[in-house]
Amino acid sequence: MSAREAILQRIRSAQAHAVVPEVERIIANPVRGPQPAPVADLVSRFIEQAQALSSQVLRVDARNEIPHTVAHYLAENSLGNHALCWPDFLELDWIAARIVVAAQPTSADDAVGITGAFCAIAETGTLMLLSGAHTPAATSLLPETHIAVLDSARIVATMEDAWDLLRRERGGLPRAVNFVSGPSRTADIEQTVTLGAHGPARVLIVLVG
């Protein structure tokens, strides 16, 4: 008998009571747990929570302001003028902002990664990133600085709302869904929080609109 059969058989004999299988019904009708109280202004709630987790948030009115905002941020933090980005952002006028961007697989030496986000969650100030051919996961992971561009209309209240949005727009999950809430951190040594562990040490959210 295979391990699989042996384990399943042991489970079944322990569950001697007959339970009607409801697996598919439960999956078809997912139940939300208790939800946080609704907030009137999702954008300000998101900003507040993101900042509490040490993300920086800068607001711009339109997409064409992104390169200048990024340039200003990079200069202010002495982060150079090179960045990797998702291909979606190549169309912006980076030259005018004196930023050199490239959309290619991330290497260990890249200092800045610019990504979009599928949506964001106001409850915890969290970005939701989906992996894909044009949205590689490593861009938000390897560089020391992660800059995420987020459309303010894509801020939802809770993670449950984000799942609903994903099911509605994409039908299912991509290989990797990464929820990002601020720069990477560790508190392993003496339970003292230090920002910048293995992932980015800085997260900037450029909020559009």
Binding site: L53, R175, N178, F179, S181, G199
Partner: peptide, 13 residues
Amino acid sequence: DITNYVSVLTGAK
């Protein structure tokens, strides 16, 4: 309130 990363991984690349 939440860890820095919550990753939901489904299938190979």
